[in-house]
Nucleic acid binder design. Structure first.
Lengths: 214, 214
DNA sequence: CAGGCCCATTGATCCCGATCAATCGACGCC
DNA sequence: GGCGTCGATTGATCGGGATCAATGGGCCTG
């Protein structure tokens, strides 16, 4: 079997996701479509049912930073204050479960929801800290190696398909598209990964990849 | 009046800090002393009473990334799971209010504590995201400019004193100590900031600094 | 005050990743 | 099948920041 995030899978739904099932609305988004925009009022919480999503922040001069990539079962928009600090866009056609923040209040009372929200925010913070570490002190090669390792690990299956293009990888890693491409070629040359196409690969030498990911 | 975080100030104590006053213990730490260590069991929450603290993460090859700097009124160790993901060290002699996580449970019940913890974690996440943006896409000059701006803004007073040395700034910004020094010199040459000594400065041209911080 | 230590600054050179530019290759359309 | 489009790859060159090395300057100690 190939491919990780098949359209109708919502693996290991979080407790929050199951709470959210009771309220809210399923909405389809087309590939490339904006789910919410930077600096908009943040009154919704989004749970990904199928497809993949990126969060991005754009500077006035066009420089772009990708916050993270999200897959089925992930929640986005949680951690926000009054305004969204990133925008979210569909990487592929996807279905999003949308819940008004205010309607979460009806579930409040025993404090378990609060703790669940906190937990989710905490995990988001951990991921962001890991991302930070990578941007601050890793070389281009280490960045790309860690990225491929992380994606492959998350998928947990032999053949991995990348839902994002090279530009998205570059904007996530703080590199240019050319450098990402070169590092991928290099990793392939060392027989550490094997790309069937630009968005389809498998790890052939895990220990070497781990070592390079530093 | 000079200097920002004078030893006995705990400005704008957070609601959580005031809750914490009811339980826990005040502990002094000497400059350079470790408050908690990376990968240790995270059973404490720390609120800074006086002094300044840095959180750092060390890689096996010696590369270091600073997570953030903390001042009186700030809480650290909040966001952690079972283990601390960074270590925390005193930048100067300081006093820390230490509370066992388990003893926070006695305050639990109405859910207000949960929401306060969540809020604090959310703010921490926001700061980390901002830091991320800086590491990913800013030039050395922009990084140093943003850093000085942020410190000066936080202090909100004319003369700013930096509690950290150049190496700490470098490890926060993902640069080398030499580059930080050069950029500081450059900003000084453009009459944007003015350093009385290596750790003492004032902003002379705010608009220019804002523009460079990008 | 002299000497030593530690940190910051400055200078010279190198190299990684950015930039500029050309080519490739998959896919859709006529 | 030929052709246009768009994303990825590859090549050549440039430049910002790292690295290596020397100097400066505050502060403590004797």
């Amino acid at each position: 079997m190939t491919l990780a995030y098949s359209p109708d899978t919502a693996p290991a739904a979080s407790p929050l996701a199951s709470l959210m099932d009771r309220v809210g609305l399923r909405m389809p988004f087309a590939k490339g479509e904006e789910i919410f925009g930077q600096d908009e009022a943040a009154d919704m919480i989004h749970s990904i049912v199928s497809g993949a999503v990126r969060t991005t922040r754009l500077q006035s001069d066009g420089r772009r930073q990708i916050g993270d990539f999200y897959y089925p079962g992930d929640i986005i928009g949680l951690e926000t204050g009054d305004l969204y600090r990133f925008s979210a866009e569909a990487l592929s056609d996807c279905v999003i479960h949308v819940v008004k923040r205010s309607s979460l209040h009806v579930l409040r009372g025993d404090g378990s929801l609060d703790r669940t929200l906190w937990e989710a925010t905490r995990r988001e913070l951990e991921r962001t800290q890991e991302h930070l570490l990578m941007l601050g002190r890793k070389s281009a090669c280490e960045k790309v190696a860690s990225f491929l390792r992380d994606v492959a690990q998350r998928v947990g299956c032999e053949d991995v398909s990348l839902p994002m293009g090279r530009q998205d990888m570059a904007d996530y890693l703080g590199l240019t598209i050319e450098t990402v491409s070169r590092m991928v070629t290099q990793l392939q040359g060392s027989r550490i990964v094997e790309f069937a196409s630009a968005r389809q690969f498998r790890v052939t030498r895990w220990p070497a990849l781990e070592r390079l990911a530093a």
